[in-house]
Design a protein around this nucleic acid. Structure first.
Length: 222
DNA sequence: CCCTGATTCGC
DNA sequence: GCGAATCAGG
């Protein structure tokens, strides 16, 4: 299968969305993940956190007898930063309750790291980017991020409980993905309406209705 | 083993 | 340009 414009564009999109090469290969069909990776690189798509890559900065030869090779010029391969979040989720600093003054955390130094955006729009961490919890749990008040306009008033993952319907609406990663959130049918994780969808009695064949077409093109065949 | 992305290299 | 083979970390 050739790399048509459509397929290239799809590859670009999915790659930038953070899908793995395998997923993209499945999605495109008729290509291996190697083909996807190779094409992505040829297209100049931004590299992503690779398990193998942190290879460079290490081993300069301990060997003394190294030939006086003309050392490669310091290639400044600073790629342009990945598109920043369009929505500056502006968490206004809450007037922290008159709790005892918390010892302020050490100032986080600015970190020019290469990042990419995951499917949910979250910022992926690069490898080796974690900070060891040197200070055990700074007594900082946690504040929920202001929900984006799209999910305002919707039930988010963080609000799930045993009392409200966990039926997902939309798809994870989409901006308006949320949960049903209406009171549950007691003893079930869903509300009455969605229980009726989730738990269906086996009907005689003649009474069954064919399932409606799935909105997203059907389950993945894998 | 499975997964991942990066790189190489013959075509 | 393409992608299988290979590498190497999780």
């Amino acid at each position: 299968m050739a790399w048509t414009d459509e397929r290239i564009e799809l590859l670009r999109k999915l790659w930038e969305q953070g899908m793995t090469a395998s997923q993209i290969a499945d999605e495109l069909g008729d290509v291996s993940r190697n083909a996807v990776i190779g094409k992505a690189h040829r297209l100049g798509l931004q590299a992503r956190p690779s398990p193998v890559r942190p290879h460079e900065a290490a081993a300069e030869p301990v060997v003394v007898a190294a030939a006086p090779e003309p050392v490669a010029e310091p290639v400044a391969m600073v790629e342009e930063p990945v598109a920043p979040e369009p929505e500056p989720v502006e968490v206004e600093e809450p007037v922290v309750a008159p709790v005892q003054a918390a010892p302020v955390a050490p100032p986080p130094p600015p970190q020019p790291m290469v990042r990419s955006i995951g499917p949910g729009g979250f910022v992926r961490s690069g490898p080796g980017e974690q900070q060891p919890p040197s200070t055990p749990a700074p007594p900082r008040r946690l504040v929920p991020a202001k929900p984006s306009a799209e999910i305002a008033g919707k039930t988010s993952l963080l609000e799930l409980s045993d009392k409200i319907c966990k039926w997902p609406l939309g798809h994870p990663g989409e901006p308006d993905f949320h949960f049903c959130g209406t009171p549950v049918n007691p003893g079930f994780p869903y509300c009455l309406e969605h229980c009726s969808v989730a738990y269906q009695a086996q009907l005689p064949r003649r009474d069954r209705r064919p399932p409606p077409p799935l909105p997203y093109g059907g389950p993945r065949v894998r």
